[in-house]
């Protein structure tokens, strides 16, 4: 039975590790400025935890086999209540490992969440509702118009859905769309909002995720670094349509972005 345990535990360990190393399923390609740092932290954690995982599982299997009860031929058990030196060694080692990892990662976290967006960032307001994302650009005046919960009408399309108050002068040039366009290599300043329940704005390729919470307007920033189409998913249970609360972000060149926004402005007139 000890041998069977050895075989199965080692097999499970090596099969899982094989898929982790060969990685047919892996983080999607990173296309934002912060992706590299996050991925690096991920891989560091991954290698360290992988080593601990393999060592712990293999010694568990090994001990199960090696110290099985072999009847009378076996050496007597080692009567011991423990070893304080060993306890201290592995307490300190794991302490250093875990706290060290934490400190490494916290720098990236600080850059992600503590620093405000640059002044040159493109402002985009993201609004989540059951079960769609709407994106708003402030237009040439750089100011978002007022929205009013009383005016919200999801059945009447984008502007009405987020309750844009068209009597506000700042709202005149606001562009509201269902697909997000972003210029490449320029920081985006997101304002995340939700009108009904909590949603979570998740762009796997950009290593971006933040809950959109009713009652709060949360600011986040991200810099896309590659032109392309990327999927947006909702990552917080928001009701029966959670699985289809899906959107697209199209990262384009600055010229294409300017052209696109000008066309939207023209449509509004």
């Amino acid at each position: 039975m000890g041998l069977a345990l050895l075989a199965v535990i080692w097999l499970i360990t090596f099969v899982s590790t094989y898929f982790f190393i060969w990685h047919p399923w892996w983080l999607p390609a990173g296309v934002s400025a912060s992706a590299a740092a996050i991925d690096h932290q991920f891989v560091t954690t991954y290698i360290l935890m992988g080593i601990v995982f393999v060592l712990a599982q293999c010694s568990l299997g090994l001990f199960a086999w090696q110290y099985r009860d072999r009847g009378s031929s076996a050496p007597p058990v080692d009567y011991s209540h423990g070893n304080t030196t060993m306890e201290i060694v592995w307490t300190v080692l794991t302490g250093v490992l875990f706290v060290g990892l934490n400190l490494m990662g916290s720098k990236i976290w600080a850059a992600e969440r503590f620093e405000p967006a640059q002044a040159s960032a493109v402002p985009v307001e993201v609004t989540g509702m059951q079960f769609a994302w709407y994106f708003r650009y402030p237009g040439p005046d750089g100011k978002f118009g007022i929205t009013n919960p009383k005016l919200m009408d999801p059945s009447a399309g984008s502007e009405a859905a987020i309750g844009l108050d068209t009597s506000d002068p700042a709202a005149k040039d606001d562009v509201v769309t269902g697909t997000m366009f972003l210029p490449v290599n320029r920081q985006v300043d997101f304002t995340l909002r939700a009108v009904d329940v909590i949603h979570s704005f998740f762009i796997p390729n950009m290593r971006f995720k933040q809950d959109a919470v009713p009652g709060l307007a949360i600011h986040m920033h991200v810099t896309p670094t590659q032109i392309g189409d990327y999927e947006i998913a909702c990552a917080e249970l928001c009701g029966l349509g959670h699985y289809k609360m899906h959107g697209m972000v199209k990262v384009v060149s600055q010229e294409d972005f300017d052209k696109w926004i000008a066309a939207r402005e023209a449509e509004k007139q």
Binding site: F42, M49, F98, L101
Partner: peptide, 17 residues
């Protein structure tokens, strides 16, 4: 051992939920 991934807010960005 998957805990230390999720305990880091940085890695929670791709992994949370």
């Amino acid at each position: 051992l998957s805990g230390p991934f999720l305990a880091q807010p940085t890695l929670d960005i791709p992994l949370h939920d």
